[in-house]
């Protein structure tokens, strides 16, 4: 079911078009990745979804209805540039932010207790934010983002600025939140996390969406006939490959050898095996899907040309 729909959204800043007729659809209970180089328009789009900025044209729909400011309590937002009131105490501030999202004081206290225990940060309750390290502040900020159990979570570059331990914690929490039924939209440069977490993605460049869809489909779609072969036998692999195919790498691995082959002319794994089986003993073969990183770089370069 379509949970969040962004339809033909355009935003202009002076002579600069930050978003040019952008449309994406996020299904319910999905993790959706918003990818793109700096300045592609991701943050502007996220601010429009959060009702911070108004689009010049187009519409944001939540569960089929145009989104209004009243829907904002359904959303949890972790901006790219994170910060809290420095002079305020951690607990006080978390309570305040929760109440801004419409929680009652009692609910907020109960939920905060749960999260503070979960993250083992109870001792910080009465500390001022400025006494905390940056990583600690990010934990607190994450808690305040998810506290009101929003149905839609928006993270702008969640992995930037987090140390590896917190980034991993965050990754687990994102999966946990999905498990509990939330829909998650996040923007990132961090491609490994995209393959690991995202169901669907949209790739933005120069204010436009240049690619969108399921991660697996996209990788299959962009697969370019690369395969990895595990074999044994004293063969000069390069000389037996069909015409046009090339050997990308060939290295010994324990008693066997592992080679990466770039096929050509639409030759698939079966065809390749037919050629190679007679001359060597094959222990395994599989297609290598391009990483999101490769697809990202390729597409951004293409659309830039």
């Amino acid at each position: 079911m379509d949970f969040l729909e962004i339809a033909q959204v355009t935003k202009q800043y002076g002579s600069y078009k930050a978003l040019d007729s952008v449309s994406i659809t996020v299904c319910e209970n999905q993790i959706y990745g918003l990818l793109g180089p700096n300045g592609a328009g991701k943050t502007t789009l996220i601010r429009i979804i959060n009702q911070i900025t108004r689009p010049d044209m187009g519409e944001v729909r939540l569960q089929g209805k145009p989104m209004t400011r009243d829907d904002i309590s359904l959303v949890g937002y972790l901006p790219e540039e994170r910060g809290l009131y420095k002079k305020m105490k951690v607990g006080e501030q978390a309570l305040y932010l929760a109440q801004l999202k419409g929680m009652s004081r009692r609910d907020a206290l109960r939920e905060l207790k749960f999260w503070f225990e979960k993250f083992e940060i109870q001792p910080w309750w009465d500390k001022k934010v400025e006494e905390l390290s940056k990583g600690m502040q990010q934990k607190v900020q994450f808690v305040t983002t998810v506290l009101h159990r929003p149905r839609l979570l928006i993270f702008d570059e969640p992995f930037s600025g987090f140390d590896p331990i917190n980034a991993n914690l965050l990754k687990n929490e994102i999966q946990e939140l999905k498990h509990q039924g939330a829909t998650i939209l996040f923007s990132t440069h961090h491609m490994a996390s995209v393959e690991e977490l995202c169901d669907d993605i949209a790739l933005m460049n120069r204010s436009q969406v240049i690619l969108s869809g399921g991660v697996d489909e996209i990788r299959r779609q962009y697969q370019s006939g690369r395969m990895r072969l595990t074999y044994s036998g004293d063969v000069d692999l390069a000389s037996v490959l069909p015409l046009g195919c090339s050997l990308l790498s060939d290295a010994p691995s324990r008693q066997l050898r592992v080679a990466e082959i770039q096929s050509a002319n639409g030759l698939d794994v079966n065809a390749m095996l037919r050629v190679l089986l007679p001359v060597m003993s094959i222990h395994g073969v599989h297609e290598v899907l391009p990483s999101m990183n490769e697809i990202f770089i390729r597409l951004v370069k293409q659309s830039g040309e």
Partner: peptide, 17 residues
């Protein structure tokens, strides 16, 4: 202070500027 500490973006996602 709200602007430089970046808290403002969180707040304006809850209340109007």
């Amino acid at each position: 202070e709200e602007k430089t500490s970046r808290i403002v973006e969180v707040i304006v996602s809850s209340v109007r500027p």
